[in-house]
Amino acid sequence: EDTPTSDDLEQFAKQFKQRRIKLGFTQADVGLALGTLYGNVFSQTTICRFEALQLSFKNMCKLKPLLNKWLEEADSS
């Protein structure tokens, strides 16, 4: 899998936040949902820092596919 560039991550974080708000989920909701879906719960702080691009590049890269999958799930339900 290609490592995203920081531009990709920035773009995704922006879109993710917009979609999340549009779908009516809080950052805490997302963190809990990730726990339900993938077995690891993320704190509201982590989601907040992802959206604000304040996590390390490595952590951003790790979270992106999970959040992307969550968006697909949320969109289809």
Results as ranks from 00 to 15, higher is better:
45 T>I: 06
20 R>V: 01
35 G>D: 04
59 N>P: 03
49 R>G: 06
69 K>E: 06
18 Q>H: 07
38 Y>T: 14
40 N>V: 10
27 Q>V: 09
67 L>P: 02
65 P>V: 10
32 L>V: 04
77 S>K: 09
63 L>T: 03
33 A>H: 13
53 L>K: 10
52 A>F: 01
12 F>G: 03
72 E>Q: 13
47 I>K: 02
58 K>R: 10
75 D>T: 12
36 T>H: 13
33 A>T: 09
45 T>Q: 13
51 E>Y: 00
41 V>P: 11
13 A>L: 01
44 Q>C: 03
62 K>N: 08
47 I>V: 09
20 R>T: 00
40 N>H: 15
21 I>Q: 13
4 P>R: 12
21 I>T: 07
37 L>S: 09
52 A>C: 08
31 G>L: 02
59 N>C: 11
65 P>T: 10
2 D>K: 11
37 L>W: 07
12 F>N: 03
48 C>K: 15
19 R>I: 07
61 C>H: 08
24 G>M: 01
72 E>W: 07
2 D>N: 13
48 C>N: 10
11 Q>P: 02
68 N>C: 09
7 D>V: 13
5 T>N: 14
12 F>W: 06
53 L>G: 14
68 N>E: 15
27 Q>E: 12
72 E>R: 10
60 M>D: 00
56 S>I: 02
3 T>W: 07
76 S>F: 08
57 F>R: 13
19 R>V: 07
53 L>H: 12
25 F>W: 08
60 M>W: 02
28 A>I: 07
73 E>H: 06
25 F>D: 01
21 I>R: 07
32 L>Y: 07
34 L>G: 00
3 T>E: 06
5 T>G: 11
37 L>Y: 08
35 G>A: 12
62 K>I: 11
76 S>K: 13
47 I>S: 01
15 Q>H: 14
36 T>Y: 14
38 Y>P: 04
35 G>S: 14
62 K>M: 13
18 Q>K: 14
41 V>A: 13
74 A>Y: 08
6 S>T: 15
76 S>C: 10
6 S>H: 15
60 M>V: 03
29 D>T: 04
75 D>G: 11
49 R>L: 03
60 M>L: 05
37 L>N: 09
13 A>P: 01
7 D>S: 14
37 L>V: 11
72 E>D: 13
74 A>K: 11
49 R>T: 04
52 A>N: 13
3 T>P: 06
77 S>P: 13
11 Q>Y: 12
17 K>T: 07
23 L>D: 01
49 R>W: 01
44 Q>M: 08
18 Q>R: 10
65 P>E: 08
17 K>D: 00
64 K>D: 00
77 S>F: 08
53 L>Q: 11
55 L>K: 04
32 L>G: 15
15 Q>K: 13
56 S>N: 08
39 G>C: 03
39 G>H: 07
9 L>M: 15
14 K>A: 12
66 L>Q: 06
21 I>W: 03
27 Q>M: 04
75 D>E: 15
67 L>M: 13
32 L>K: 15
18 Q>G: 06
36 T>F: 05
59 N>H: 13
70 W>E: 01
10 E>F: 15
29 D>C: 03
51 E>L: 00
61 C>Y: 06
64 K>C: 03
28 A>C: 07
11 Q>W: 07
66 L>K: 09
46 T>H: 06
18 Q>W: 04
2 D>W: 05
57 F>L: 10
18 Q>I: 06
66 L>Y: 06
45 T>N: 10
76 S>L: 09
45 T>P: 06
41 V>K: 15
34 L>F: 01
33 A>F: 05
55 L>C: 05
40 N>W: 05
21 I>S: 05
21 I>A: 06
77 S>H: 12
56 S>K: 08
76 S>A: 14
34 L>I: 08
15 Q>R: 11
3 T>S: 11
64 K>L: 08
63 L>F: 04
53 L>E: 05
41 V>S: 12
60 M>P: 00
2 D>C: 09
49 R>F: 02
47 I>F: 01
36 T>D: 10
1 E>L: 09
66 L>W: 08
4 P>Q: 14
20 R>C: 00
38 Y>S: 12
66 L>D: 01
59 N>Y: 09
55 L>A: 03
68 N>L: 13
20 R>L: 01
62 K>Y: 06
36 T>N: 14
72 E>F: 07
12 F>L: 01
68 N>I: 07
33 A>W: 12
54 Q>F: 00
37 L>K: 13
12 F>S: 02
4 P>C: 15
35 G>L: 03
34 L>V: 05
70 W>P: 01
20 R>G: 00
33 A>S: 09
55 L>Y: 05
58 K>S: 11
52 A>V: 02
59 N>E: 15
36 T>E: 14
3 T>D: 05
4 P>K: 15
48 C>R: 13
18 Q>F: 07
11 Q>E: 11
1 E>R: 10
63 L>K: 01
27 Q>T: 14
36 T>M: 09
46 T>C: 05
56 S>E: 08
61 C>L: 13
9 L>G: 02
8 D>K: 10
63 L>R: 01
60 M>E: 01
42 F>Y: 14
54 Q>T: 10
50 F>R: 00
29 D>N: 06
31 G>Y: 06
24 G>F: 00
75 D>V: 08
25 F>Y: 14
8 D>F: 07
75 D>R: 10
43 S>W: 03
2 D>R: 12
35 G>I: 04
45 T>G: 09
16 F>T: 02
10 E>K: 15
70 W>I: 02
42 F>C: 12
60 M>H: 04
54 Q>A: 08
35 G>N: 13
64 K>T: 09
67 L>D: 01
4 P>D: 14
54 Q>E: 11
45 T>E: 15
18 Q>M: 10
43 S>E: 11
55 L>H: 06
19 R>H: 11
70 W>M: 02
44 Q>G: 13
7 D>Q: 15
43 S>G: 09
62 K>G: 07
62 K>Q: 13
8 D>Q: 14
5 T>E: 08
75 D>F: 05
9 L>V: 09
34 L>R: 01
59 N>M: 14
56 S>T: 08
68 N>K: 08
21 I>D: 03
30 V>E: 00
48 C>I: 08
29 D>L: 02
39 G>I: 01
58 K>C: 05
26 T>Q: 02
20 R>K: 00
66 L>M: 12
73 E>L: 12
19 R>K: 14
16 F>Q: 02
49 R>V: 00
17 K>H: 05
27 Q>S: 08
44 Q>K: 12
66 L>S: 04
27 Q>N: 04
